[in-house]
Simulated assay, not measured.
Amino acid sequence: MSSATLSGRTALVTGATSGIGYETARLLAEHGATVLVHGRTAEEARTATDSLIATAGIDSAQLCAYAADFTRLEEVEQLAHRVSESHPHLDVLVNNAGTAAPERHTVTADGNEVAFQVNFLAHYLLTCLLEQALTTDPGGRVVNVSSSLHRTASISWSDPNRARSYSRLAAYAQAQMALTIFAADPRVTAVSVHPGICETALLPLYAHQGTSAAEGAAHVVRLCDPATEIVNGAYYDRDERVEPAAAATESRSIKRLNKLADLLVGHTS
């Protein structure tokens, strides 16, 4: 990818203040994109943009800081409105923000299991609200940063909060499965990607060691490049397109997930 491949394009990266999200924002900006840097708080988002300017030499004109706590869906709605007003033409949305499910069952103020909300429901709502801003120009797309752990998951349709039987690994995997299924939603052009096992805050869920966050981010950024042809709903393991878990592409699962997600976020498709 040349240094100016993404010149003139605008990308929103969620969870861009650390790990793969931060490195994704850096690489996108280095390749010429205007990057909307999302953080949980305004302070975290500003710190990330300041770091990108100071340590990576990114032009400040290419960066915009945005804040929203994904444990609060109201803030996700506010984020979508701010982005739509300031950037009505959005080329790429990278749904990257994620959290490890806590040891103990935890529910957000919105009433959802925290990992399911932060890792999936918030991204579902954000994507739906930005649907009009997401360009239909060639190369416009959503990239969901998923996980190979989606293969171990089953969605507890009757108890998505897993209140009756909670396991942090099962809760995390369920959210990643939902994010992978969501990539096959026909409303937007989207793919999902497992960026590899990387040295991030989520590493303990996978292994004791991993590759750098920058290496994982490179797999994400490749899919953001309009020169990379994609098929809606495709799943990538790093830079290789592979079949996801069977449930991730079933039309019944897609419809069922959309219905559940709309109910939980209070959104009408």
Rank of each mutant, 00 (worst) to 15 (best):
His89Gly: 00
Ala246Gln: 12
Asp159Trp: 03
Arg26Met: 11
Leu134Ile: 15
Val143Asn: 05
Pro195Asp: 02
Glu74Ser: 14
Met177Arg: 12
Ser251Asn: 06
Pro204Gln: 00
Gly266Ala: 06
Arg151Thr: 12
Thr136Ile: 09
Thr249Ser: 12
Leu73Pro: 02
Cys224Ala: 07
Pro186Lys: 08
His123Asp: 06
Gln176Phe: 01
Asp91Met: 12
Val221Asn: 02
Ala234Pro: 01
Asp50His: 13
Thr106Cys: 05
Leu126Pro: 00
Lys255Ala: 14
Tyr66Asn: 00
Val145Gly: 03
Ala163Glu: 14
Ser167Cys: 06
Ala56Phe: 12
Leu52Thr: 07
Asp262Ala: 09
Ser2His: 13
Thr249Ala: 05
Ala45Val: 02
Tyr236Ser: 00
Ala25Gln: 07
Val94Asn: 05
Arg222His: 12
Pro88Met: 00
Thr41Ile: 08
Gly15Lys: 10
Ala61Asp: 13
Leu125Cys: 08
Met1Ile: 03
Ala16Met: 11
Leu93Asn: 05
Ala97Leu: 10
Pro204Arg: 03
Ile181His: 10
Phe70Glu: 00
Ser51Val: 04
Arg222Ala: 14
Ala201Lys: 15
Pro244Glu: 01
Ala97Glu: 05
Ala218Leu: 09
Ser2Asp: 13
Val231Ser: 12
Ala33Ile: 12
Asp137Gln: 15
Gly39Asn: 06
Val94Tyr: 13
Ile53Thr: 14
Gly139Val: 05
Ala97Ile: 04
Arg26Cys: 08
Gly8Tyr: 12
Asn144Gly: 05
Thr5His: 08
His105Trp: 14
Gly19Glu: 06
Ala173Asn: 10
Thr228Met: 08
Leu121Arg: 11
Ala163Pro: 00
Gln132Arg: 15
Gln209His: 14
Ser7Gly: 01
Tyr124Phe: 15
Ala248Leu: 03
His31Thr: 06
His150Thr: 06
Gln174Trp: 01
Thr49Met: 03
Tyr206Lys: 03
Glu44Phe: 05
Glu74Leu: 08
Leu263Ser: 14
Ala68Tyr: 04
Glu131Asp: 10
Ala109Ile: 04
Thr268Arg: 14
Gly19Asn: 10
Gly216Gln: 00
Val37Ile: 08
Leu203Asp: 02
Asn161Asp: 12
Val13Gly: 03
Ala207Leu: 01
Thr47Ala: 15
Ile181Asn: 07
Leu129Trp: 07
Pro138Glu: 09
Ile58His: 09
Asn258Phe: 04
Arg222Glu: 04
Ala170Phe: 01
Leu149Arg: 15
Val107His: 03
Leu169Met: 13
Tyr235His: 11
Glu229Lys: 15
Glu43Gln: 13
Glu113Lys: 09
Ala207Asn: 12
Ala67Arg: 09
Leu90Gly: 10
Ala201Glu: 14
Thr14Val: 09
Tyr235Trp: 11
Gly57Cys: 11
Ala45Lys: 04
Gly140Trp: 15
Ser154Asn: 09
Thr14Ala: 04
Asn96Pro: 11
Ala213Trp: 10
Thr268Phe: 09
Leu6Asp: 01
Val188Cys: 03
Ala217Tyr: 09
Thr49Phe: 10
Ala261Met: 08
Val37Leu: 03
His267Gln: 02
Arg238Pro: 00
Met177Ile: 02
His123Pro: 09
Leu169Cys: 00
Gly32Ala: 04
His219Lys: 08
